[in-house]
Design a protein around this nucleic acid. Sequence first.
DNA 1: ACTTCGCGTAAAAAAAGCGTAAAAATCCCT
DNA 2: AGGGATTTTTACGCTTTTTTTACGCGAAGT
Lengths: 225, 225
Amino acid sequence: MRYKVMVIDDEPQIHTFIRISLAAEGFDYLGAGTLAEANEHLAHFQPHVIILDLGLPDGDGLSFLTQLRQTHKTPVLVLTARDQEDEKIRLLEAGANDYLSKPFTIRELIVRIKVLIRDLVSLEPVDDRVCFGALAMRTSTHQFWVSGEEVVLTKKEFAFLKMLLDRPGQLVEQSVLLREVWGQTHVEDTHYLRVLVSQLRKKLNDNADEQRVIKTEPGIGYRLV
Amino acid sequence: MRYKVMVIDDEPQIHTFIRISLAAEGFDYLGAGTLAEANEHLAHFQPHVIILDLGLPDGDGLSFLTQLRQTHKTPVLVLTARDQEDEKIRLLEAGANDYLSKPFTIRELIVRIKVLIRDLVSLEPVDDRVCFGALAMRTSTHQFWVSGEEVVLTKKEFAFLKMLLDRPGQLVEQSVLLREVWGQTHVEDTHYLRVLVSQLRKKLNDNADEQRVIKTEPGIGYRLV
DNA sequence: ACTTCGCGTAAAAAAAGCGTAAAAATCCCT
DNA sequence: AGGGATTTTTACGCTTTTTTTACGCGAAGT
């Protein structure tokens, strides 16, 4: 199992340092120079750990973190130039899992990454099957079942249902679904959701009146019941 | 749920500081001055988190940690006087989950304890149900109940009731409600409130004269009773 | 006693939101 | 490069929600 570490920083030097050290430890490296790029990588490669440097050109690290935590629990280690206590506390409370202020040694960074993987990543279940009522899903093989019958889903359909199944019974907001499935640029295109849900319900035979599995909360989002 | 934090240190001053701060956060404090004492507590009280200062009179912290990890996975935060990198790395690799070198502020210690609890101890999902009298509401699923019966609410109705339920029994001003539910542009459209409350009372059967749950404070706002 | 103010209610009008179908564009294979 | 599957766009009917409007009532003030 190779773990993927995403590094978000705008200094190429830092990237070089970290990349070499990560490789030496057997980790895969994913580089991002901007938050936009980071969001791209997040959707495509699903990193196991994120190293986030503050003070990026295209946005504020704290709000990136807050937004990330709405959908992901990926461990985040924050790097910062200033050693300011208030900031430290705000970030940790917003969901950061560790914090390192410059200057730091690369050795310490690597050890802390390894601690995050040891404590938070490697204990996740190996069998990634998720169930809810008559629905079942396995991410690793991209399979989906309704009452034991396999149903073939498209990429978007799968991503949508995964969002709901990862939060069984909970309401997931439209904007969250749109951002996760279609990307930041389509957070307001709610008609995508309507078309997809309609299609999905046809596939799942989920039109038995008033007892739908995918429940619409008008104006807010969807949830499973 | 009260979390138990064990502090292992031989300086009484540190104990005092930490004990007071832990109490303020709602955590239970367990003090140990020696490793022998720590082992006692461990067996009897099963703490959720351990704060371990190095350089204790009766033994070496590293071997304590190594031994602990053979049987327990209780999160450990290590405190140390020296900021020596080799030691840091050795400890983290031996199973410590976080590390803080002196001098540190008590605030940072507390925040890091809270992070350990959040990330490693309290993995159970939180139930965000809020109750007041016969009313109950769960934000995460957007559900609402009156005397156990679910009542379906619209977006505005839900937002309005959430404002009142978040401040149980307290008076909430009209302008506050309007700003929160309808936005800054409608802070003076008090007729919105009247229409919505009327409709809401119908839904909640809240017209039993003079004993309404949603109480009007004429000219000021609303509150729950 | 009359006016004024704010509240509650009802009903109509407007807006927003949903589900569906089908066409157009795009993607992704071989 | 072709062709089927997928995604995006577009349009429309329909329901629900929100906003507007109107009116009656009672309390407080003049």
